[in-house]
Amino acid sequence: MAKRLTGLLTPIIAVLLGIIVGTIIMLVSGYDPVAAYTALWNGAFGDIYYVGEVIRQFTPYILAGLAVAFAFRVGLFNIGVEGQFIVGWLAAVWVGVAFDLPKIIHLPLAILASIVAGAIWAFIPGLLKARFRVHEVIVTIMMNYVALHATNYIIRNYLAAKSGDKTEPIHQTASLRSEWLESLTDYSRLHWGIVLAIACCFIMWFLLEKTTRGFELRAVGFNQDAAQYAGMNVNRNIILSMVISGAFAGLAGAMDGLGTFGYAAVKGGFTGVGFEGIAIALLGANSALGVFFSAILFGALKVGSLNMPLEAGVPNELVNIIIALIVFFVASSYIIRVFLDRFNKKGVK
């Protein structure tokens, strides 16, 4: 019971500390924190339109968070979600542009393409880890940049419309957009992807907690040697976990490719979704439910922050600072636990 409570308290304390330090930064730099946080709230929940945008924003966040969390549970750090996200985005858009099919085939095909692309992109570091014991962190970082430059090259040279640096819009038959959802939220860019994202939360939970394969994956995450001794194939599980992680990340790319934007553009730098995914997975303690809730928090922060310069004159980068601080505090949860333990002991006396 006490352990569970601490487990829940740590992320909450980390978020509070992040907000407190954010407040201090605003006070020091002469901004009004109350006005800023009010603007943040209004920008996320003040209007049904903003609510729709928040949901749209956290749809890929859920999937990116699941991708990082899934690998974490098997003891791997997939820092390459960003790259898998980008290739998934491009693959989905490519299928969306290149084929003329009825919706019932076209949309699933485009989604499948994103999943396969992400999975392949993550298979490489998984294979290198399993076969050559190469650290997956470094390989996935390098793969991110390869993905960025390679997709830019493909878009610019093979898929770009006449304007030069983005593809044609995808066909309606491959789109996740929904006029009904849009009209429901005062014409935000809300799309059907959210249903897929929630379904993936269930899939991850079911796969890890309720299947033999999931038990093996978790066992490898807890102790590779013990898993090996128990007769599990550690290498196969490492590769499998990276492939599933990459599949989630690729699907996240389809959310933006088929839902929010409906095209793929040449990117000057990373989208950041993959890195937010790391923060989301950490804050959500790598569980499907935790990822879901922390994705909502990050989506609300991101969308709400856009209102801060307008209403309170505070640069929206403040939210990025707060997110970074939350990551710091979650990562340093050891010290938070130490304090909580001290506090508890004093309470007993």
């Binding site: 890195f275 640069p315 980068e317 990025n320 600072i321 970074a324 710091f328 990562a331």
Partner: peptide, 26 residues
């Protein structure tokens, strides 16, 4: 604080871009 080095590094990257752009705008 015994944080995971990679996670802390990611936080450094996020914080650096956030903080510097915040200051530039300020």
């Amino acid at each position: 604080f015994r944080a995971d080095h990679t996670v802390s590094g990611v936080a450094i990257n996020l914080l650096a871009t956030g903080l510097t752009l915040f200051l530039v705008k300020m």
